[in-house]
């Protein structure tokens, strides 16, 4: 269940942004991506999640093992917290939402429409979805945005729990989550010397 990424090249808008990114993450480990804004953290994460094709390179695990959480949470504001979570648990074919509700302290909010939640509460609901997917590799793009310190600590413990259960996590974050078993990858070293792709037509699609 080890995730190996070999010489991955990713592109944004038809231009390569990162070249020859290689790393491996073992079960129980987290990888923190670092680098300045615009270096391609989100692009790399979207490529790993299967939302866009890589230019070249290999990823050892299938997209079916990845659970992706982006800047936006994918919450339907007119549904209640419970309906939101139950929907994802049905889609991913998992049995229960109780552990997720407990881990993110959502029990008191279950019957509230998601539109009435604060930004931090919405974020917690969005992250609770990860637990509902039952997938092994968590791909997290700036997961701590709009979380307060207590919630950040809470989220740190949830990730620790996921890793302890043999899961993996790849995250782009600027905040230290206090993870004990975290590797760090500085993306600055992989910046692509930009040139137009060979497949010129693709750039216009």
């Amino acid at each position: 269940m080890e995730l190996q990424v070999d010489k991955l090249c990713v592109a944004r808008g038809g231009l390569a942004v990162l070249r020859d990114v290689s790393f491996s993450v073992k079960p129980g480990q987290a990888l923190v991506l670092r680098g300045p804004n615009g270096i391609g953290k989100t692009t790399l994460l979207r490529t790993l999640a299967g939302l866009q094709p890589a230019l070249s390179g290999q990823v050892s695990l299938a997209f079916d093992d990845m659970a992706y959480a982006a800047h936006v949470d994918g919450i339907k504001t007119t549904l209640t917290v419970k309906e939101n979570l139950l929907f994802w648990s049905h889609v991913f074919g998992t049995k229960t939402i109780d552990p997720a509700v407990e881990a993110f302290a959502l029990a008191d909010l279950l019957d509230k429409p998601a539109g009435l939640l604060s930004a931090g509460q919405k974020r917690r609901l969005g992250l609770a979805r990860l637990m509902v997917t039952g997938r092994a590799v968590w791909i997290l793009d700036e997961p701590t945005v709009s979380l307060d310190q207590t919630a950040v600590a809470l989220f740190g413990r949830v990730i620790e729990g996921h890793l302890a259960g043999g899961g993996l996590a790849i995250l782009a974050t600027h905040i230290d989550l206090g993870l004990s078993n975290a590797l760090s990858l500085e993306l600055g070293a992989y910046r692509a010397v930009s040139s137009l792709q060979d497949d010129f037509d693709e750039a216009f699609l």
């Binding site: 939302l51 992706y68 936006v72 949470d73």
Partner: peptide, 14 residues
């Protein structure tokens, strides 16, 4: 698309 659930649906088993 706007609230991000399309990305999540695309990465789901469906």
């Amino acid at each position: 698309f706007e609230d991000g659930s399309l990305d999540l649906l695309v990465t789901s088993p469906l």
